[in-house]
Design a protein around this nucleic acid. Structure first.
Length: 313
DNA sequence: TCCGAGATGAGCCTATACTT
DNA sequence: AAGTATAGGCTCATCTCGGA
């Protein structure tokens, strides 16, 4: 059972929500700290407003409270850039700076009438945090793709470690992004689309692609931190994150890739378990498994090699 | 009422490109 | 060649809040 949180509220919305609760029989409770603006008890749920512009409602089994939640959703409205086209199409990648595993580039497109349903699902999904379990990502992923199987278009491309070792990363990203765009746009069969990508510093291929799309009449946006401002990018980042976590989880649980009781850890260069695993594996004289990015600095240092500068031009 | 979990920012890692 | 910038990732410390 989960509560609900609404973020980025201004004073006006806060006031309207407070009035809504009071007019539906809510009773005011004393605040518990300076940073609390008000507390209102309504049936089995306590609503707390914080000075940071956040309102939180504790879990409920009351239909009345759930109806109020929907009304609050309407007052709060868009917590991301509102739709400007009938279709919203976002792309993002996960696993770029990791020393293990693949990079996943994912794209998600959905019609604008699914905006609020999706916003509700993704409101809690924090893609930056690794602390959440694979089950958590799977839940958000399933929630996203099963929202409306006919209308939600999803496509992802995997960039394997061997490619990362042998080619320019941004050029690989360019190609993966273009593949995803072509696939999903082909399914949409319309240019009434807003395409938003998280700006990884696009290379020429992708820049050209974006210009071509613009000429076709598609709205194109590339900006950093796009997942915070565009719901479609947030959705894509969740898909990419899930696929990446799934792969790493499978490697981690594979006994074949455990040594001296050590797993591969998170796969990041400054994860202590990952470093211990690297040292133990190297000591055993086994060759590196497929998922290790052999050209990365950390691996070269473990091998006693001089870290070479990567110049794939 | 109060403890601990989640959020956040700094500083480290990875990559590439541009400037000096 | 070294320094700057951009991107994403993780860890750690600190602080804000979430919830019993």
């Amino acid at each position: 059972m989960n509560g609900r949180t609404w973020r980025r509220l201004d004073d006006d919305k806060d006031k309207r929500i407070r009035n809504l609760l009071l007019s539906n029989g809510g009773t005011e409770l004393p605040c518990h700290a300076d940073f609390e603006r008000w507390r209102i008890q309504l049936e089995d749920s306590t609503f707390t407003s914080y000075t940071s512009g956040v309102i939180y409602s504790t879990p409920t089994s009351s239909p009345t409270v759930q109806r109020i939640w929907s009304e609050i959703d309407e007052i709060v409205g868009f917590q991301y850039e509102p739709p400007t086209r009938n279709w919203l199409f976002g792309l993002d990648e996960a696993g770029k700076g990791e020393i293990f595993g693949s990079i996943f580039v994912a794209g998600v497109a959905f019609p604008k009438d699914l905006f609020f349903q999706l916003q509700k699902i993704l409101n809690f999904a924090d893609t930056k945090s690794r602390k959440r379990s694979l089950q958590y990502w799977q839940g958000v992923y399933q929630g996203t793709i099963s929202l409306d199987k006919e209308k939600v278009k999803v496509h992802a491309v995997r960039i394997p470690p061997a490619s990362v070792d042998s080619e320019n990363l941004r050029k690989l990203l360019d190609r993966a992004y273009i593949k995803v765009i072509d696939k999903i746009l082909g399914e949409l069969k319309t240019v009434d689309v807003r395409i938003v990508v998280d700006d990884y510093m696009l290379e020429k291929d992708m820049q050209d692609k974006m210009l071509e799309l613009k000429r076709m009449g598609v709205e194109t946006i590339a900006e950093h931190d796009a997942d915070q401002n565009y719901l479609e990018v947030k959705a894509a980042s969740v898909i990419a994150k899930y696929l990446r976590e799934k792969e790493i989880d499978e490697i981690r649980n594979n006994k074949e890739f455990q040594i001296d009781g050590l797993t591969i850890g998170t796969g990041s260069s400054n994860n202590p378990e990952t470093l211990k695993w690297l040292k133990a594996w190297h000591k055993s004289n086994k060759s590196w498994p497929w998922f290790v990015r052999k050209t990365f600095r950390t691996i070269a240092i473990i091998e006693g090699r001089k870290p070479s500068k990567r110049k794939f031009k």
